[in-house]
Write a protein that binds this DNA or RNA. Structure first.
Lengths: 128, 128
DNA sequence: TTACCTGCAAACCGTTTGCCTAGCA
DNA sequence: TGCTAGGCAAACGGTTTGCAGGTAA
């Protein structure tokens, strides 16, 4: 049985912010302001559990640690190569046709797919 | 000036195999059969350089280390959640329209995008 | 009361780095 | 010969784990 700890509730609150994709470390920093003394292992354990439960999404970021997204509706992401920020991208795509026709996808059991755009965000683009 | 070492040439040979996406460790194991005593740092250094030169592509894999793909033509990947293998996926997609119209993409400078499908491959699906 | 959860610190493990030697140009 | 690349091992940094005490149900 899963219990509701104060730590878990606050982590969920942090991740429920819209278009916010913090790293474990960023979550930890914010969490410490609300619960001083909280350990980073607690963040890892809770976030891992939430990912396994499907409550949040894990975004892989090369080089740095992973980022997390509390919005589980199907959408995509853009990552800035300069400032490492991540932004939501909402596209109305239909992948089903491809999944059912293109090898090796049609012979496999496809559970999910992700699309990640990379480049330079508007902010970094204008601030040379 | 960049020199051609035996190590570098063999790593490139390994990565030029079609639909092959080894990890650093796998490259190292294969490389050791050809050049006994080669160190894993050599694999890291050469592979990093090749990625920076755009000769190969780095694929991020959650949990395990990255995988690498010697084919730089635009294509996508499917990763099996059971056996962790990666297969090429060739789709004739047109993303330009989305990139030029959907925020925040249209305000950013998009350099690239990746699509990764996940699920259970044909092999794992049939071998319960 | 009793699992589960937390904080702490050590362990882990993939990756990077420093240093010295080897070998290509 | 000069300078890049390699081998080795230590360092690094993010993540995981063991343990003892805390806490939700």
């Amino acid at each position: 049985m899963e219990r509701k700890s104060r730590q878990k509730i606050e982590i969920r609150n942090i991740l429920s912010q819209n278009n916010f994709h913090p790293t474990i470390e960023e979550i930890h920093i914010i969490l410490k302001k609300r619960i001083p003394g909280v350990g980073i292992a607690t963040v890892y354990r809770n976030v891992d559990k939430m990912v396994r439960n499907g409550e949040i999404i894990r975004l892989e970021v090369p080089g740095q640690g992973a980022r997390f997204d509390g919005n589980t509706e199907k959408h995509y992401h853009f990552r800035c190569e300069k400032c490492a920020s991540v932004e939501d991208v909402w596209l109305d795509l239909d992948m089903e046709g491809y999944i059912n026709s293109a090898p090796p996808l049609k012979d496999a059991l496809i559970n999910d797919y992700v699309i990640e755009f990379t480049g330079v965000c508007q902010q970094c683009r204008h601030s040379i």
